[in-house]
Design a binder for these strands. Structure first.
Lengths: 342, 342
DNA sequence: GTTAGATAAGACAGCGCTGTCATATTTGGG
DNA sequence: CCCAAATATGACAGCGCTGTCTTATCTAAC
C-alpha cells in the first residue's frame, strides 16, 4: 500500500480504497448503527492498512464531539495530581480521547477558563480540588454547558457530577482507630480551607472524638495548608504544647510527613512518643520512616471514573445531573501509629 | 453587545462588527504584517467585547499550526515531571497554546505514538527522559517531521533539539565537593540505564574519583533505577559492605532519599556516619531529615525553553537541527553532607 | 513623472471530517 | 401480499478558520 511516510491518509482515501462513501467510513469509526458487517470489516481492514486515524481537529470542527478532556488543577505538583492524570489517561487511551491539562492557579480565575473554553469545545472537563469549589469556574463551565465532573467534595452544584469518597466517615473511622489504640489526646491538623474535603475531615475527627467522650480543646487543633511545611509548623505548635497529644491526625500525608519530620527534629520518636496518622495514601506516606498509617483514596480509579461519566453522558444532556459517585476508602495501617498500653 | 451566554462568537461576527474582512481579523489575531493601526485596534476592541477566541479546531484544520504542544512521558509521577509540566504550561499560556499530555510507557512503543501523531498535528512535542532516548519514538516523530525538543541528554539525533545541563560536569563537581569535604570512600548509585543522564553522571563520578587519585572499586558502585526503593536497596548493599563508604552519591534525589531512609534504618546517622548527595533538587531532597545536598537542575526553565524553541522554529524547518541548549546547574549544599575531619 | 516594491485589504477555496437529509433495500406483522 | 418500520448507504453542505491569489493604494528612487 502507498503508506507514504509522513503523509497521513484521510477519510476519503479510506473510503475510496474500501469502495464505500466517506460517511460509511465515518459510521464505522464512530460505531454507529446501520452498517453491514462486510463493509465494516472492509473499512476496518483498509483503515488498519493505511494506518488511518481521523484528524482530531477535523472531527472537532465538524461534529459535536472534540475527543478532548480538560483537566484543570490548582497546582500540578504532588502525587495526588499525578494519580489523577494517570487515571484520566488510562481511560482516554481506551476511548481515543486526549487530555489537555491546564493550571487555574488563582481563585475566581474564570477569565482564563472562559478564554480556554471559547477556544476549545471539550467533551468534558475534570476538576480537582480546590478548583472544583470555585464557583466562578463552575459558572463559566455551566454557561457553556460543558459536562463537568468534580473529584472531591465541595460546594453544592447538583448539575455537575461529583466523585468522592466519604471524607467525613473516613476521618471518623481513622480517628476511631486512633482511639481504639488507646489514644485520648489526639491532635488534628486541618487542611487547606479552600478544599472542600478539609471541613469534612475535620468534622469526622471532632465527631469521633466527641462520640467517644473526648474533648476537642483548642490546643489540639492546628491549621494547615496541605503542604509539608504547614504540617511541620502545625506539629511544632502541637508538640510543644504543655499537654502534648499522644497522636496527631493530619488531614493529608504531606502534612503527616511534616509532622514526622518535626517530631524527629524535636527528639521525639514516632510512633513511640507520638503516633501519626495521615490521609490520601500518598507516595510520601510509604517512604517516610516510619511509614505512615493513612486512609487510601483510590484516586486513579476515581479519575478514570470521571472520564467514564463524561463519556457515558455524551449526548444525553443533563446526564451528569445529581450524579454523585462515592468510592470506597481503606484504612492502611503502617508503622506510624502505636497501641498505647493503658 | 450581544454577548449571549454559552454562545461563542466566530471570526465572521468579529469581522462584521469591526467592518473588515475575516482575513483581516485573522491577520490581527496572528500578528501578521500589513494591517493598519486603526483596523487593528478596531478588531482588537471588537474581539475583546465579544470575548472572542478563535477555535482551536478550526485553526488547526485550516492552517498549518495546531497550537498544541505534546508532552510524552514515561510515567507522570514525581516532582520532576510536575516541574516539566509547569514550565511548559507557563509558556503555553503566554503563547496561547495548549498542552496535551500522554504516557508512552513501554519502550519502543512507537505504535501508540504513531496513532496519536496521525490524529493530532502538534506544533511540537517535548520528550522527557527516557522517552527521548527511544529511537522508535524518535523515528516516528521524524517521519512526520514534528518539531521535537528533548529534555535531558540521550542518544545522538542532531535533527532534534536538546535541552540539558552538563550532567557529566555536574556529577564531576558534586563528587569533587565530596572529596573536598574529606571523603575518600565515596559510594555511587547509578541511575536507570534507560535514561541518558545515568551514564553521564556515573562517568562524572568516576572521572572525578580518578582525577583525585581515588579508586572506584566494584563494591563502591551499585545499580539503581531512580526510584526510592532501588536507592534503598542499593544503599543496603553499600552500607553493609565491610568497608563502608563515608559518603554516597545517588544519581537522583529519590534514590538519595532511599539512602537516607536505609541508613537510618541501619542505625546510621546522616551525615555523621554517612554523608549523602543527591541530584535534581527534587521536592524530596528538601523534606528529608536531614535535607539532602544535591545538584539543582532548573527543570521548569528548561521545559519553558523547550516550548520557546518550538515556537521560534515555527515555519523555518530545520530550525531545531543541531540545536542544543545547555542550562546551568547549581550545587545546593544542605545538611546531608559533613566535612570529615582528617 | 514613472515604476518597482512595499503596504493594505479582501475574495475565495478548502482543510477533513460529521450532521442532515434523501434514497434504496430489507424485514415482519396483519 | 402490502405497507410501515427498521436497516443500509450515500450526496452534500458546512463547521470556523487560514493559505493563496488578486487588487488597490502608497511609497520612494531615478
Amino acid at each position: 500500500m502507498d503508506d507514504l511516510k509522513g503523509k497521513n491518509a484521510t477519510i476519503s482515501d479510506v473510503a475510496r480504497l474500501a469502495g464505500v462513501s466517506m460517511k460509511t467510513v465515518s459510521r464505522v469509526l464512530n460505531n454507529e448503527k446501520y452498517v453491514s458487517e462486510d463493509k465494516k470489516e472492509k473499512v476496518l481492514a483498509v483503515a488498519a492498512e493505511l494506518n488511518y486515524r481521523p484528524s482530531l481537529q477535523a472531527r472537532g470542527l465538524a461534529g459535536n464531539r472534540s475527543f478532548m478532556i480538560g483537566l484543570f488543577v490548582d497546582d500540578p505538583s504532588g502525587d495526588y495530581i499525578s494519580k489523577v492524570q494517570r487515571g484520566i489517561l488510562r481511560r482516554c487511551e481506551e476511548a481515543g480521547c486526549y487530555l489537555v491539562v491546564d493550571v487555574l492557579r488563582e481563585r475566581g480565575n474564570d477569565a482564563k477558563l472562559r478564554q480556554i473554553l471559547n477556544s476549545i469545545r471539550f467533551d468534558g472537563v475534570v476538576l480537582s480540588s480546590p478548583v472544583c469549589d470555585d464557583v466562578a469556574v463552575l459558572d463559566a463551565l455551566r454557561e457553556r454547558s460543558v459536562p463537568t465532573v468534580r473529584i472531591g467534595p465541595g460546594v453544592d452544584a447538583t448539575d455537575m457530577a461529583q466523585i468522592e469518597i466519604d471524607d467525613y466517615k473516613a476521618a471518623f473511622e481513622a480517628t476511631e482507630f486512633l482511639i481504639g489504640q488507646g489514644h485520648q489526646r489526639i491532635g488534628f491538623i486541618k487542611g487547606d480551607p479552600n478544599h472542600g474535603c478539609s471541613l469534612d475531615r475535620e468534622q469526622g475527627y471532632s465527631k469521633a472524638m466527641r462520640a467517644h467522650g473526648l474533648t476537642v480543646s483548642n490546643d489540639l487543633v492546628a491549621p494547615g495548608m496541605f503542604s509539608f511545611d504547614s504540617g511541620y509548623t502545625a506539629a511544632e505548635k502541637l508538640l510543644k504544647s504543655e499537654s502534648r497529644p499522644t497522636a496527631i491526625f493530619a488531614s493529608n500525608d504531606e502534612m503527616a510527613a511534616g509532622v514526622v519530620a518535626c517530631a524527629q527534629a524535636l527528639g521525639l520518636r514516632v510512633p513511640l512518643d507520638v503516633s501519626v496518622m495521615g490521609f490520601d495514601d500518598d507516595f510520601l506516606a510509604t517512604i517516610m520512616s516510619p511509614a505512615i498509617t493513612t486512609v487510601r483514596q483510590p484516586i486513579e480509579d476515581m479519575a478514570a471514573g470521571a472520564v467514564d461519566l463524561i463519556l457515558e453522558a455524551k449526548g444525553k444532556s443533563a446526564a451528569l445531573e445529581d450524579k454523585t459517585v462515592i468510592f470506597d476508602y481503606e484504612l492502611v495501617k503502617r508503622k506510624s501509629v502505636r497501641k498505647l498500653s493503658a
